[in-house]
Design a protein around this nucleic acid. Structure first.
Length: 705
RNA sequence: GCGUGCUUAGCUCAGUUGGCUAGAGCAUCUCGUUUACACCGAGAGGGUCAGGAGUUCGAGUCUCUUAGCACGCACCA
């Protein structure tokens, strides 16, 4: 009887040493796995952002992939779980700038190169911390292949992709309405923004013969067009191109009437003026009607010279003053104090965004989305939860061109060169090297993070020539959070189809968000976060892993409570005691050489049931019903092995004349149970496996399923 | 406005292709400790499976419909 089993199971005593054993065995590395393994299996793990700590969402993230990986390893495949870190572009720079602020410093007054170097150092340290955290979750990934998006070879390939796409006409330089973050001074893609409801006053102004309504009076300096719906009977006397005189902010102006179907007749007065430079819808109207446009707000978010006495003011300060001036002129007809509307803000920083017209790099999406839709139609990849297929399709059918340039230091520089040829003419060359001749200036912009992470399965495996790429691509499963169904997954599919004609992965498993006990999103500001590491410390990693899986179908959000984690901590202890009982009553039993022909019908039936159970469990895992499989094995061990097998055979193995058939049965059930539970609860099963009476056995992690 | 999901025990949720008496964890109640395990065991209570209609020999499961909730997307001059 082993001393250790006399005490309740204590995860903290064994987890570190077990993980170390696995690492030392080399079995995380597919090249070092024992036995002959024909088939390979690969999951490229979504890169963790280099700027923070692991949160509860990462719990599901790593646990699900690890369960799948461990199972595939046990059924005899060459398994590669590839870990990686993403530089996190804009987000990371934001985190770093906050740190600077705390030190009383700022990035302004620092060269871009200096900022880049400082962030690199910061990130390197963080990556190390994150690695340790991922190990704490029991993740069996191959650290020797760890990849980072800012590695030199990866940067080169990202640039090569850009150049190839430019040559193929899939990337263009365009002057379009983009989302500008005036605080962090960069443009953003649509998916990096979100809407926030704001309740603000809504103003009605007299504008010549019309009444217009707006929530942004401070943008109205240059407006000289009024737009109405062509079917609006109230204004049927006015025709497109009619002009009128109006007293306005800077004195008298001549306005022009436009008719456009984008106007909502129900909203406001049914007439609006347009500000194309600072509103995407207005810009589209202006383009349709061939109008010119003027910038009102600069990149700092301040009014420009056109605003007269208001020039230089931040928009939110100017607004009440502008209204005051209009009031004095007698042009304010009505103010609704509580108008609730959605304002576009930066998803990461919450900063209110200002639409601006700017020259940026855009990816032409249509040819790429068509590739993805075709592959979907041909069922070359599939979603574990079918509902995501619709979301995916919707995004592919409605995506607009993608702004990939960011005006931040922390990112991969865009390999483009500009030469001013006088007036507004600019010559552009896309190349890794400086073009011959004088006057070439390199583009100072960097790529959107998603431009590199979108190519991640390819880049991480060393596309196009690395042997890993040949062995493991296309990968088997993409497992990530359901919020990435349109942010990331389609990009990987499109880049992969474009560059290699292959799909990047066969199966897409999307998990839901982890919520707090009340079903609310976890966030630092609400103070309701549960760190997987704290859970692991308190209840054991194995218990934490089970709680992330059970009772949660793929794609569905899941409230997490410590109560639930505790339930699986109890389960670990139960298994511990089961092992204690079995080992202490089978001492000196020769499991290797037991003659199974001695078994009687009773035992044979039980073993047959065991086989049936295992088949069923395997099927569940094969079809990614991990939540069911975990619950079944839990139930099997507690209510079959403990409640029935042990209870029924107890007397016969405790007595002086031990029944060797039942001893065998107990060990057989324990053997299989440990294997079946191992993907879910790897630490405790590996620990118990140490004492299993088989000679010359290897680690459980590579035991044959 | 468009889309997706949800509504099953007091709470959180499973229930895979329709098929034994609808399950688990937590919570509640009763009993039990010289017992592998009190981080336990034996047992109990608790459900018109949101409402309605339909398909079927049979519906928690499929179809339609009503209501409520959540999330995503679009618009918000």
């Amino acid at each position: 009887m082993h001393e250790k089993y006399t005490k309740p199971y204590d995860a903290s005593l064994i987890e570190n040493s077990i993980y170390k054993k696995w690492e030392e065995s080399g079995y995380f590395n597919p090249d070092k796995l024992p036995g002959k393994r024909e088939e390979s299996f690969c999951i490229v793990m979504p890169p963790t952002n280099a700027n923070g700590k692991l949160h509860a969402g990462h719990g599901s993230d790593f646990v699900i992939k690890d369960i799948i990986g461990r199972y595939q390893r046990m059924i005899g495949k060459k398994v590669l779980l590839l870990p990686s870190t993403d530089h996190g572009g804009f987000e990371t720079q934001g985190v770093y700038e906050k740190n600077l602020q705390k030190e009383g410093r700022s990035r302004f007054g620092m060269s871009k190169a200096q900022l880049y170097d400082e962030i690199y150092t910061f990130v390197e340290k963080n990556i190390h911390n994150i690695e340790n955290d991922v190990k704490k979750l029991g993740t069996s990934c191959d650290w020797s292949r760890n990849k980072f998006t800012m590695q030199k070879d990866i940067i080169e390939k990202v640039k090569d992709t850009f150049i190839k796409m430019y040559k193929d006409g899939l990337i263009y330089r365009g002057n379009r309405s983009i989302h500008w973050n005036p605080k962090f001074k960069t443009s953003l893609a649509d998916i990096e923004t979100k809407f926030e409801d704001k309740t603000e006053p809504f103003y009605y102004f007299k504008y010549g013969p019309f009444e217009i309504a707006t929530s942004r009076p401070e943008t109205k300096f240059g407006d000289k067009y009024v737009v109405m719906h062509p079917d609006d009977k109230r204004y049927s006397n006015w025709k497109e191109g009619d002009t009128f005189e109006a007293e306005w902010l800077n004195g008298k102006i001549t306005g022009t009437v436009l008719k456009d179907e984008a106007i909502d007749m129900e909203f406001g007065t049914g007439v609006m003026t347009i500000t194309p430079w600072h509103d995407a819808t207005d810009f589209e109207i202006a383009q349709r009607h061939g109008l010119d446009y003027e910038q009102i707000i600069d990149l700092d978010g301040r009014l420009m010279d056109i605003a007269g006495e208001f020039s230089g003011m931040k928009v939110h300060i100017a607004r009440p003053k502008v209204v005051e001036k209009l009031k004095e002129k007698g042009l304010v007809t009505k103010i609704e104090q509580k108008h609730t509307h959605a304002v576009r803000v930066c998803e990461r920083t919450g900063v209110i965004l200002e639409p601006q017209l700017m020259e940026q790099w855009f990816v032409k999406m249509k040819p790429l989305t068509e590739l993805a839709l075709k592959a979907l139609k041909e069922k070359r990849f599939s979603f574990v939860s079918k509902q995501f297929e619709k979301t995916f399709r919707y995004w592919m059918e409605n995506s607009i061109d993608w702004n990939i340039s960011r005006q931040i230091a922390w990112g991969i520089t865009i390999p483009a060169w500009f030469k001013n040829k006088g007036e507004e003419n600019e010559e552009i060359i896309v190349s890794n090297t400086k073009p011959a001749g004088d006057g070439w200036k390199q583009d100072t912009d960097t790529f959107d993070t998603w431009f590199s992470s979108g190519q991640w399965p390819l880049l991480a495996l060393g596309y196009p020539n690395n042997s890993d790429f040949k062995n493991f691509f296309p990968t088997d499963v993409m497992e990530t959070g359901r919020d990435l169904v349109f942010k990331w997954v389609p990009k990987m599919i499109m880049f992969s189809l474009y560059l290699t004609k292959e799909i990047p992965f066969k199966v897409i498993y999307l998990h839901g968000m982890v919520l707090d006990r009340k079903g609310q999103k976890m966030s630092k500001s609400k103070g309701n976060t549960l760190s997987p590491l704290e859970l692991s410390d308190e209840f054991g990693t194995d218990a934490m892993r089970m709680s992330f899986i059970i009772g949660n179908t793929p794609g569905k959000d899941m409230p997490l409570t410590t109560n639930k984690v505790n339930a699986y901590k109890k389960f670990a202890n139960k298994l511990w005691n089961i092992s204690r009982f079995i080992y202490s009553n089978t001492e000196n039993f020769d499991f290797d050489n037991f003659d199974t022909s001695l078994l009687e019908k009773d035992q044979l039936n039980k073993i047959e049931e065991l086989d049936e159970f295992k088949k069923d469990l395997s099927k569940d895992i094969d079809e990614y019903r991990l939540y069911l499989a975990a619950e079944k094995i839990y139930h099997f061990i507690w209510h079959e092995l403990a409640d029935k097998i042990i209870e029924d055979t107890k007397d016969s193995v405790i007595s002086e004349n031990k029944d060797i058939k039942n001893q065998y049965l107990l060990l057989k059930f324990l053997h299989e149970s440990l294997k079946m539970l191992h993907p879910f609860m790897p630490f405790i099963t590996e620990e118990i496996w140490k004492d299993f009476p088989i000679k010359d056995k290897d680690l459980l992690i590579v035991e044959k399923w």
